[in-house]
Amino acid sequence: MTPTDLVDANLLRTMIVVATPLLVAALGELVLERAGILNLAIEGMVTLGAAAAFVVLFAMAGLTGGVALSLLSAATAATVVGLVLAYLCVGLRANQITVGLGLLIFSLGAASLLYRAVVGVTTSPPRVPTLTPEAVPGLAEIPYLGTVLFRHNLFVYAALLLVVPVWWLLFRTPLGLRIRATGENPKSADSLGLPVQRIRYGAVLAGSALIGLAGAFFPLVLTGGWSESTVGGRGWLALMLVIFGRWRPWQVVAGALLFAYVDAVGFVFAATSRLIPVQFLQMLPYVLAIAVLVQVYQRAQAPAALAKPYDREARY
């Protein structure tokens, strides 16, 4: 490993691919948290989304529409979990930490069961072909930048650009203002006539759908398969990214790229590095997350009502 390897075009290209699921999941979580709901089930939802997407790709091998249907099933599976989360945490005002962890375990189990029900017991895990990267005509020929930026699949671009509608929704539309108001001060929002519970329900469902979509990127773009360790903590990293980005979409993008870079270093040098054991490279994103928490946490501006259930009849 030499210093120039660290800015290698293929490494940076991998960084962008690895960043997509992190980014999409973090944007989903961002929507949820802006409405005041903390979703600790995110790792499970991503795993379930990945499993749902994979089984569709597996069952529809080669058929047209398989990719679209796999995205749909990933989003649906996570949204169902999100519905339970919304019902328990918004509707019934249960503790978001315990419900989140319950649904985390639930989703991990559901993902394995779904995989078993469709794929069955196999000696070697089946694989589906990952989406092929397509070169953007002309731009892909630019030396270096062409490799880094313009040789990706369409879905990778879609994921990166997703930040624009999310940012626009949250910060440039009346609905976004209402979502944020619900997460900052639900009582005020309620007194102004906003349907706090309905907004929270909507934010949880929309955010969960995005989190499920993030899962679909694992079989579609990254691994072509599914196992219980496919997601391997990247859902938790997405949760960290929201804090790292201080609940702002563009900062979340920057964070996703940073964490993806560190993750990609692990990927790329895993095979070649003799100097540093692979496991220390794989550890890096999590160590970085702790370091980031220490730096960012005290100045972080969380939505004021985050993880606090809203009871309109409670007296404070």
Binding site: V84, L88, T98, V99, G102, L103, I105, F106, L108, G109, A110, A111, S112, L113, Y115, R116, G120, V121, E228
Partner: peptide, 16 residues
């Protein structure tokens, strides 16, 4: 051939 982690689902349902 129940997957090992299917037990999570059962436990989670009890808790939820």
């Amino acid at each position: 051939g129940l997957p090992a982690s299917a037990v999570f689902l059962f436990q989670a349902v009890v808790v939820l």
